[in-house]
Structures are given as C-alpha cells and as structure tokens.
C-alpha cells in the first residue's frame, strides 16, 4: 500500500519536472501552448523534447538496472557503471559509430551497445557469481572499466574522423546535448523491451533474496530467470549508452535512496527506481544547462559529484558487517 503511494508521488514528480525541463532553456517556453511553424515550436519539440525524453528513458533504465543487479547479485554496490556494463556498451557503440557501420542500418548503433553490454554482464557474472563478496565485484568492475576505457580511447585514436579523439569525454561521461528525436526512435524500443523483461522478474528477485534454494523450491527456474534479468539489463543499458554515453552512479544512488521508502523487497524497488532514475537525470540535465560555462558540462560530472561521495558512504556503512 505504501509503495503505491510512493509510486504515485514519484510519477507526479516526474511529470512535473519533465514539463519544467521542457519550459526551461535559453528562454522560457510554455510547452502547452506553442504555435506550429515558429521557432518556438522547433526549439520545444525538436531540441528540448528529445533531450527530456532521453533523460527520462535513460534515467529509468539506469535506475531499474541498478535495482535489478543489486537484487540478482545480492550485492548493494552493484550498478551498471561500477560493474563495467556501461563502459562495455560504450565500447560497442564507439566501434559501430566511428567505423561508419552506424549508417548501415537504423538499429546498428544500439545493437553495438547491446552486444558490448551483453558481453560484460556475462563477464561480471562469470567473475563474481551470485555469491560474490562486496569487494570482489567492485575489483572486477574496476579492472573491466580500466581495460575497456583504454580500448575506447584506442578505437577513437585510430578512427579517421579528426574529432573522434576529443569525443572520448562524451563516451566516458555522457551527455544529452544536441540529441534529436532520431536518437529516441532508434534506442527507445530496446530500452523499453529490456526494461519490461527486467520488471517481470520482481517476484523471482524477492524469492532470491531469501536464498537461491528457497527461490528454487518456490518454483522459479533460476537459470531461466537469470537470463531474463541479465538479458534485460544488457539490452536496455546497451541501447541507453549508445545514444547518451556512459552516465555513472544513477543505478547505485537511486535504489539506495528509495529503499527506506518502500522496504527491502526487490520487487517494490524496481518500479520506483525506474521513476527515481528518470527524475534524477531530468534534474541533472537541467543543472548541466544552467551552470555550464563556454562549453556544456557533461552529465556524468553531475551524477559522479552526487554518486561518488554516496558510494563512499555505502562502503563505510557496510564495512563493519561485510568487510
């Protein structure tokens, strides 16, 4: 009952901040009254709308994936950024974009991201399993992030385009600047499909929190459900990163902030984390636009400024019990 209230509250908040984000920019525009065929219409629906839509979708994907991975790996520090899924997705997208493959088919770019994300989820699962200690997961993620970051800069360095190398910042920190509805169209189907798959796994994750054997006796086929969660996370995060770059810490921060409101069952956490992630990124994207100097700040800077200290706080809080 309480989680229904929280859901309603977050949904209202998301609609409110999204409308506000549409209105906010170089000038104030009323999103509910913009005549067609004027520059107001273009600014509102072709420049701001794609930005807000992507912030909502990508934020929801990252928040949801964080909550699902924390449930699946039974590890409070799991997050697509920390375990290296986002970086691998960025590598896949980078290979597709700068080689020119992105022009071959509309789905090539998100597909590259999804393949990269898929490989890394498998890697993390192989490395740490579902009984991983808190820190073996982080160490594995650190290694994957460092290695894949190097591969990204290698690919960008050999790319033919003279601007490729300077875009490493975009891929490592993420941004919604200058995105168009085209980016929404190519990535949204995969983000939605992947998220739906993850959302169906709520009851399994609830059962899993009581232990793997309990989940099996309750009638869940662990192999099947593991594939559903892992596949859903890979598809949604892969597609999200391919159009926004690697925006870190959302999946870590959001579930932890919302857990006290809805309790500890993963199922309840999934929906609220999706909404919470969306709200966080819409707000962060507005902040980026308002505080930037001559060149717009990357979004990952804001999320890391929030997420970094939060990460340390979680480590400190769990240290005594699980070191």
């Amino acid at each position: 009952m309480r989680s229904t209230w929280v859901l309603g509250l977050l949904l209202t908040l998301l609609v409110a901040v999204s409308l506000f984000a549409l209105a906010y920019g170089e000038v104030w525009l009323n999103p509910l009254a913009a005549g067609e065929e004027s520059w107001r219409y273009t600014v509102l629906w072709e420049i701001r709308l794609p930005r807000v839509l992507l912030a909502v979708l990508v934020g929801a994907v990252l928040g949801l994936s964080g909550a699902a991975l924390q449930g699946l790996l039974r590890n409070p520090l799991a997050d697509p950024g920390i375990v290296g899924v986002s970086a691998c997705a960025a590598l896949g997208a980078v290979v597709v974009l700068y080689s020119g493959l992105a022009a071959v088919a509309w789905f090539a770019l998100p597909l590259g991201g999804m393949v990269g994300a898929g490989l890394s989820v498998l890697l993390v699962y192989l490395l740490s399993g579902n009984q991983s200690s808190l820190f073996s997961l982080i160490l594995a993620g650190m290694a994957v992030n460092a290695f894949v970051g190097a591969l990204i800069s290698l690919v960008l360095n050999v790319a033919a385009n003279p601007f490729a190398m300077s875009e490493i910042v975009y891929w490592l920190l993420g941004s919604f600047a200058n995105r168009s509805l085209q980016d929404v169209y190519i990535a949204a189907p995969f983000m939605l499909a992947g998220s739906l798959a993850v959302l169906t796994s709520g009851r399994y994750l609830d059962a899993l929190s009581l232990g793997e054997e309990t989940a099996t006796t309750l009638g869940f086929d662990p192999r099947r459900w593991r594939w559903i969660v892992v596949g859903g996370v890979a598809a949604s995060v892969g597609a999200a990163v391919s159009v926004s770059g690697n925006i870190g810490f959302v999946g870590l921060v959001v579930p932890h902030l919302l857990r006290p409101l809805v309790g500890h069952e993963p199922r309840r956490l999934l929906w609220v984390s999706a909404l919470g992630g969306a709200i966080l990124l819409v707000l962060a994207d507005m902040l980026v636009q308002s505080i930037s100097g001559r060149v717009e700040l990357k979004l990952g800077v804001i999320t890391a400024l929030i997420g970094g200290p939060f990460f340390l706080y979680i480590i400190m809080r769990t240290r005594s019990s699980e070191w």
Binding site: V43, I47, A102, N161, E167, N178
Partner: peptide
C-alpha cells in the same frame, strides 16, 4: 563541415533536424 568522414558525435549535431528545417 567535413566532406569525407562525418562519423562522429560532433558532426551528428550539425545534421540535427531542428537546424536543417529552418
């Protein structure tokens, strides 16, 4: 704009529909 290789985020922004329809 470059005439040959335009596979980059920097060049994608220059093909933004909001820009060209003006």
């Amino acid at each position: 704009d470059l005439s040959l290789d335009t596979n980059s985020i920097a060049h994608q922004a220059m093909r933004h529909p909001a820009l060209l329809r003006q």
